[in-house]
Design a protein around this nucleic acid. Sequence first.
DNA 1: CCCTATGTTCCCAA
DNA 2: CTTGGGAACATAGG
Length: 259
Amino acid sequence: MPELPEVETLKGQVGCFCGQKVEEVRVWDEVLGEVRKVEAQRLEGLYRHGKVLVFSFEGVDVALKLGVTGRLKVGVADGRPRASFLFSSGEWLHFIDPRRFGRFVMGNGVPRGVDALTPGIGLLWWEKAKGSSRPVKAYLMDQDIVSGIGNIYASEILFLSRVHPLQPIGDLTERDWLQIEEVTRGVLQEAIEMRGTTVSDWRDLYGLPGSYQHRLRVYQREGKPCPRCGDTVKKFYLGGRGTWYCPSCQEVRKESWRP
DNA sequence: CCCTATGTTCCCAA
DNA sequence: CTTGGGAACATAGG
């Protein structure tokens, strides 16, 4: 799951716990034992940086990294929680995470790259891409440059930008990057409005799936027709991750001159 | 049994 | 130094 739109969805929904005190913490997976420190503390605010949701308590910030299958559920837990929090309203907030890659990081979580919804990321991408031959898909997913984009949205953003996933980033122009920024913002905002993408585990705070999966153009659509030109969507692996694209719409561009 | 899967991090090699 | 591949983390599902 959890890329930027899913985490933003949770942030909005968890907002109802702001101002409340944590009456009790139950830890079912001792790896997460440190999170007991929030007991008896008031939740003062919530913010999101990339894929990380930060709970700001009176005395400490707790950054939640959801990993692959992490999610939050209010009320009755569907699945076995790794940790549960009782708030003063009497409601439980459960952290469910079958693959157990998620973590609570105590203390001021160090922000990494710039959040993907920050205006100006196109120019940032352009500046940092100069002279590099990295494939653009890996670059969009590099959380140390711009944080929040994962495997699903990277594929969709590149399709809508008409850029091949293997495109060397140093050969893209300023204009290309500004276009990619615009597409990125559009995709992420639309996915937030649709409460994220449920292709397997993702559910929102109330246990409901998102609906952006119905809007996917290429992700996990190998062999199906491209929604723009009708050609067949292809798949390959990049960095161990499935990568989908339309071979007609997304061609690798190269500079006309080479040093 | 085999393969795949929304994330991150580390090691190794070209 | 840069980049890609693979493994590890751990589990579920087709």
